[in-house]
Design a binder for these strands. Structure first.
Length: 894
RNA sequence: GAGGGGGUGCCGGAGCGGUCAAACGGGACAGGUUUAGGCCCUGUUGGCUUAGUGCCUACGCGUGUUCAAAUCACGUCCCCCUCACCA
């Protein structure tokens, strides 16, 4: 156990007692809502959690110290399968296990010194929480956004239970290993597709989100514009619409394909010679689709089903197939196939010898179906189609064909989404009960609002067979709220993503028993300013949460369009190049690290080792390094330093300057969430303070330096910082102290401190200590490159407008240079334009500039008390003049 | 296949037109402390050189833009991630 263990315990205790992290709405202060994705309470923190919380807490602390009213809460996504499994194993209730796990989890989080407002904790298994899940469900139902539909589930006949996808291993039940069947069941859906358009178009509002997440959501929603075309079945005359984005190829259709699981298929082959074969094919493909998607499904497989369809524009009869490559979920599950112009259709047609008809011709040559090796998918001119369209480029003709079809009543323009409605039914116990009742007379009846919540029963049997809720008569039996006759309750529970779709709103008012939350409170806190979590939620959770926010807004309850302003997706923690996982045996337990070093060490390492969004390679040695660094920081305040000298020496001025520039840089890095760079900066600063400490010091200066270090490090290593703060004799908690502000003038002063320091290009701040040497300089040479060009010309031009005196301009430039010498963050010469080619030729005549410079040479020499050498730009790459270039003079001291 | 992100010194990892032989950490080596080791401290860590210094070679590979490229553009090779037979 390290020397920090006691310190950490002490401050955790004090934070708890003082309640400094509790917040409430305060309209005089700017709010900041910092949120981490609430965890599933597995009972044990892993490295991913540690990383997530290290990032979030540091940022929350930083914002708090900057005067924001920071909402930083924590909660638990506590419904879910593991609890149910534990219940079966231990013959207990899932609640017991879950409660225990939450307690464990929270204890570990407290050990990390995270500055949560624990009073705002939210847990989805809490009745007062899930009643509002049910309430939202009722609202969805009311608005027609919750509905029932048949959907397939994985069924284990032996266990008599529904399996989640993760419980299906190699298409077998994970418990009994019997083959899993696919069954259709009436289940509940949320109509997220009703919001597809807005969910898509609002992505562009999410400026603070990573591009890749936005892209994933865009692809997930998958909007495509196309045409719905009414094909007819030959035998029955029934109209079967199909969706296509390539209506321009309509005349090239030579066959049609159904998704194998399309209900129409069995209907069509019933009683025909094809029935048996088709059935066998479907059985095989459906399983494949479910469980062996990664297998050789690339091979196109299909079968003719003995039926024909009629092309509405040509009247052609084309054969209908079923094939593995057509999906029921997308479009209408029935497609028109144009082998000449679609690669998949082409491969299929070749394999099953279906004719190929070319309807788009390239400009360069003629296509012959028999000689084609691949489909022609590029653009060209329409041929072999309706006279009205032949000869026209195919892309241009699409809207015309759409109009034409519409007029004839054969089809219409439509928009299609990949996004599917959200299946929320789960046939399990440990979830939010869906609040509806089935009555023989009244049908589906919502549970009246005042009867919420529909509670999960305390008494339940967990045998592993079926849904314990369904076999619980006490739960199931009820009376119809409308006609009062005996009825039965819905026994499906909701997907846990439902619970997590609005928890961030509940944090704003977690104790409200009358409403889901108070509107004013939500209005104060929302939206979440910074959301932090894993990339694995890029689509599901983050999309559902957006959907919920929009729905609640439309209900007049929530107050924002989008819930999360800034999103940070942290990278994975890996070890030996692989993801940490139990099966690989490369798991490092954060608990051990905390035990061995300290929570602060673990946090600092997590932040220092990699940028938040990058992968973080676990490295034991690196942890050592972080630990050593913190010890060094801490030992700065342990000894009681003696100091003299009231007058500030150069040494004092140097460390003060270093301090202020460090404040500036650390602040900037944290703002950008570049924690590793901020910590790196602190490491350098710490070394500088150590150096300063040697020899004579100014006690006041030293204390200020130490206090500043404590402040700057406090977001990352809060316990240590508090301890330092106390040792320095400061009052109150550092956690709520003011973040220091960089005093730029102090930085300048240091530069000025050596008026004689003129800048040697390679000098860095430490070398300033060698100023004495420079003082004795005999000769100062100023080397100026004369060929002013590009962006520098522009800068010159701007300046020339106010003054024609080059020496004044150069003086300004020198001043900037000097400022840089004081480690000013700003770059000396801003690059005005990126693209030099955009500069008008006549901006400034270069020759004139050179002359101007020559003319002013004498003045400059006097001005700077230096010898002036003027070079051509090319010359500036050589020898001593290497560091002189247009825009930046070099100064040599001899 | 589509989309995204990357290739930097012994390693991890910053930098993203000129203060770059490249931050910071780790490792290695040398020295100090120590009976010794550990901890800790100091220094070195591409090559050749100087009294200070300077030169050459280097940021996957190639070409280009520029007075100037690790940084920008184009091409090329390799790696990672996400979605994936989307009609």
């Amino acid at each position: 156990m390290s020397e920090f263990a006691e310190i950490e315990k002490k401050w955790q205790q004090r934070w708890k007692e003082s309640g400094i992290f509790r917040v409430k709405e305060d309209h005089d202060k700017k709010k900041y809502y910092c949120l981490e994705m609430y965890p599933y309470p597995s009972g044990k923190l892993h490295m991913g959690h540690l990383r997530n919380y290290s990032i979030g807490d540091s940022f929350a602390r930083y914002k708090r110290m900057n005067g924001f009213n920071v909402l930083y809460p924590m909660g638990y996504d506590s419904f879910g399968l593991p609890a149910e499994n534990a219940a079966i194993k231990n013959q207990s209730h899932p609640e017991d296990w879950t409660t225990k796990m939450i307690a464990q989890m929270r204890e570990q989080q407290e050990q990390l010194g995270l500055s949560y407002d624990w009073d705002r904790m939210v847990s989805s298994i809490d009745e007062e929480y899930y009643r509002w899940d049910q309430w939202i469900f009722l609202k969805m139902l009311e608005k027609g956004l919750a509905y029932r539909k048949e959907a397939p589930i994985n069924w284990c006949e032996k266990c008599h239970t529904v399996l989640a996808n993760e419980q299906v291993i190699n298409s077998s039940c994970w418990r009994c290993e019997s083959k899993v069947q696919v069954k259709n069941l009436e289940q509940w859906f949320f109509k997220i597709t009703a919001y597809a358009e807005e969910l898509l178009s609002d992505i562009k509002k999410l400026e603070g989100w990573p591009e890749r997440v936005k892209l994933m959501q865009e692809n997930w929603i998958g909007r495509s514009e196309g045409t719905l075309i009414n094909f007819k079945l030959k035998r029955t005359g029934e109209i079967m619409p199909i969706f296509t984005t390539r209506v321009d190829t309509l005349w090239g259709v030579t066959f049609m394909v159904f998704a194998p699981e399309h209900p129409k298929v069995m209907e069509l082959v019933k009683g025909t010679e094809y029935e048996e074969r088709v059935k066998r094919f479907i059985d095989r493909i459906v399983i494949q689709d479910k469980f062996q998607r990664t297998d050789d499904t690339k091979e196109k497989e299909g079968m003719f089903i003995g039926e024909y369809a009629i092309n509405p524009v040509t009247g052609d009869e084309v054969p209908i197939y079923i094939a593995n490559f057509v999906l029921l979920e997308y479009g209408t599950g029935f497609i028109m196939a144009v082998p000449a112009h679609d690669q998949r259709d082409f491969e299929f047609a070749k394999k099953y010898q279906v004719p190929i008809k070319v309807v788009i011709s390239p400009d360069t040559h003629e296509l012959h179906p028999a000689r084609m090796a691949v489909a022609f998918i590029e653009d060209g001119k329409i041929i072999n189609s309706d006279e009205a369209f032949n000869g026209v480029p195919n892309r241009e003709v699409i809207p015309e064909i759409q109009k034409w079809l519409e007029k004839k009543g054969l089809g219409k323009k439509t928009v299609q989404y990949k996004l599917r409605d959200w299946l929320i039914s789960r046939q399990r116990f440990w979830g939010t009960p869906i609040p509806v009742i089935y009555c023989d007379h009244c049908g589906i009846v919502p549970v009246p609002e005042k009867e919420l919540p529909v509670r999960l029963p305390r008494k339940a049997k967990f045998s592993g067979q079926g849904n314990p809720l369904a076999s619980n008569e006490e739960f199931v039996t009820c009376f119809c709220p409308v006609c009062k006759s005996p009825a039965r309750r819905e026994t499906d529970t909701m997907d846990t993503f439902v619970n997590s779709s609005w928890y961030f709103l509940r944090y704003t008012d977690n104790k409200n028993q009358k409403q889901i939350f108070d509107r004013d409170k939500a209005r104060y806190w929302m939206p979440v300013d910074q959301y932090i979590g894993g990339i694995e939620h890029a689509v599901l959770h983050l999309l559902y949460a957006r959907f919920y926010t929009k729905f609640l807004r439309d209900m007049g309850i929530a107050v924002v369009d989008e819930p999360f302003t800034n999103l940070l997706c942290q990278g994975m923690v890996i070890k030996d190049g692989k993801k940490m996982s139990k099966s690989l045996g490369n798991v490092v337990d954060p608990g051990e690290i905390i035990e061995k070093y300290s929570a602060d060490t673990a946090r600092v390492f997590m932040l220092f080792a990699a940028m938040p969004e990058k992968e973080l390679e676990w490295n034991d040695k690196g942890v050592e390094g972080s630990f050593r660094f913190l010890k060094r920081v801490y030992h700065l305040v342990e000894e009681n330093m003696e100091g003299h000298a009231k007058e500030l020496s150069n040494k004092d001025r140097f460390i003060i300057s270093k301090m202020h520039s460090t404040i500036g840089k650390v602040t900037m890095h944290i703002e950008k969430m570049h924690f590793s760079l901020a910590i790196g900066e602190l490491m350098q600063y710490t070394s500088a303070v150590y150096k300063y400490k040697e020899g004579t010091i100014n006690k006041e200066v030293y204390d200020e330096c130490a206090a500043t270090l404590a402040l700057l490090i406090s977001p990352f290593a809060p316990h240590l910082a508090e301890e330092m703060w106390e040792k320095l004799g400061k009052k109150g908690f550092i956690s709520i102290a003011h973040w220091p502000k960089a005093d730029l003038s102090k930085i300048d002063k240091k530069a000025e401190a050596g008026e004689e320091i003129v800048s040697s290009v390679t000098a860095d701040i430490i070398k300033v200590q060698e100023l004495a040497k420079i003082k004795q300089a005999k000769k100062i040479t100023l080397i100026i490159a004369a060929e002013w060009k590009y962006d520098f010309i522009r800068e010159l031009k701007d300046r020339m407008e106010s003054t024609r005196d080059l020496s004044v301009i150069l003086k300004e430039i020198m001043a900037t240079e000097l400022k840089r010498y004081g480690e000013e963050i700003v770059k000396a010469v801003p690059s005005f334009i990126k693209d030099p080619s955009k500069l008008p030729e006549e901006v400034l005549d270069q020759q004139t500039e050179s002359n101007l410079l020559q003319d002013n040479k004498e003045t400059l020499a006097q001005e700077f008390k230096a010898e002036i050498i003027i070079l051509k730009a090319e010359e500036s790459r050589e020898g001593k003049a290497k560091n002189a270039y247009p825009g930046k003079p070099a100064i040599l001291i001899e």
